[in-house]
C-alpha cells in the first residue's frame, strides 16, 4: 500500500471524528448537473436533462449483426469476439422443448443454423446491451466512484480513475461490462454519449435496418419511444433484481434472461 494513500485514507477515516472537512458523495443517483454540464445538444434549452432510454422490438430483429459491427467501429471496442458493448442472441426452442441459445458472430456472414430446421418449434433474435439501470448494481459497488450515472441517466466509466478491480463486472446481472484489454479499465455501452448529446442516434440504432431499436428521451411526451411505451406490452430483463432498466423490450419471450 502506498504510503501516501495510506495516510490520506487514515485522514479520510478520521476526518469525521476530528470534524475536518471531508466530502462524501452520494451513494448513487446523478450528480445533479455536474458543473457546467457537457455540451448538451446544441440549442437545447438548459434545464431538466433528458432521460435517455431505448426500446427493442424483438419481433423486428433479423439478426443481421449490423448493430454489433457499427458499435465496435464507433466505440473502439476490440474486434475480437470476447468484448461487446452490444450483441445479438439467437434463441431456438426445439420441438422437444430444449432451449438452444447462442450469440451471433460479428462480420459478414449469415447466422448459421445451429438446429436442424425440422426440430425447431420457435426461434427469434434478442439484441442485448447495457440496460442503463436507474438502480445500477455496478455503480453501487465501484469502490472508487469511477462509474456513475450521468444527468441523462447513462451509466459511464471514468477510464482515468477506474482501478480495474472488476467488481462492477461481477455485479452486472446482464454481462454488459468487460475489461478493455488496452486500457485495463471497465468498459461498457454509453448509449453513444458522444452522439446522443449532440442529437445523433446511437450507432446501433442508426444502422438498424428494421427499426428494431428505438432511441429517445423517456420523458418526452410525444416521440417514437413514447409511442412504443404506450402501445406495446413492455418487459425488462431480470425485473426481479430491481435494477430498473431503461432498455425496454416488447414481444420478449419468457425464456430470455
Amino acid at each position: 500500500m502506498q504510503r501516501r494513500g495510506f495516510l490520506a485514507g487514515l485522514a479520510a477515516f478520521l476526518a469525521p471524528i476530528l470534524g475536518l472537512p471531508f466530502r462524501r458523495a452520494r451513494a448513487d443517483g446523478p450528480p445533479e448537473q455536474a458543473g457546467g454540464a457537457p455540451p448538451h445538444a446544441a440549442g437545447k434549452p438548459a434545464g431538466k436533462p433528458r432521460r435517455f432510454g431505448m426500446a427493442i422490438q424483438v419481433d423486428r430483429c433479423i439478426g443481421c449483426t449490423r448493430c454489433m459491427d457499427a458499435c465496435k467501429a464507433e466505440n473502439n471496442v476490440p474486434k475480437e469476439p470476447f468484448f461487446f458493448r452490444t450483441w445479438v442472441e439467437q434463441y431456438t426452442i426445439k420441438t422437444d422443448g430444449e432451449l438452444v441459445v447462442r450469440s451471433l458472430k460479428t462480420g459478414n456472414g449469415k447466422p448459421s443454423e445451429s438446429v436442424p430446421e425440422r426440430e425447431i418449434m420457435r426461434s427469434f433474435f434478442v439484441p442485448k446491451l447495457c440496460n442503463q439501470c436507474d438502480h445500477p448494481p455496478c455503480v453501487q459497488v465501484c469502490p472508487v466512484g469511477a462509474t456513475f450515472r450521468s444527468p441523462e441517466g447513462v451509466v459511464l466509466v471514468d477510464e482515468e480513475r477506474c482501478i480495474g478491480c472488476r467488481y462492477c463486472i461481477q455485479a452486472c446481472p446482464y454481462g454488459a461490462r468487460y475489461l478493455h484489454p488496452d486500457t485495463k479499465t471497465a468498459d461498457k455501452c454509453t448509449f453513444c454519449y458522444h452522439r446522443t448529446t449532440r442529437d445523433l442516434l446511437p450507432a446501433c440504432v442508426e444502422v438498424c435496418p428494421t427499426s428494431a431499436r428505438i432511441f429517445g428521451d423517456l420523458d418526452n411526451v410525444a416521440s417514437p419511444l413514447t409511442r412504443f411505451k404506450r402501445m406495446k406490452k413492455i418487459h425488462t430483463l431480470k425485473p426481479d433484481l430491481n435494477t430498473e432498466p431503461k432498455v425496454l423490450y416488447s414481444d420478449l419471450d419468457g425464456v430470455v434472461r
Binding site: 457537457p38 464507433e74 452522439r195
Partner: peptide, 22 residues
Amino acid sequence: REYHVKSTLEREANRPRRFAGA
C-alpha cells in the same frame, strides 16, 4: 468528485464520431 464527473462527461461527449448520421 464533482471534477471527476465533469471531466468524464466532457471526455465521453467529445469522443470522435465515425457514423455521420442520416
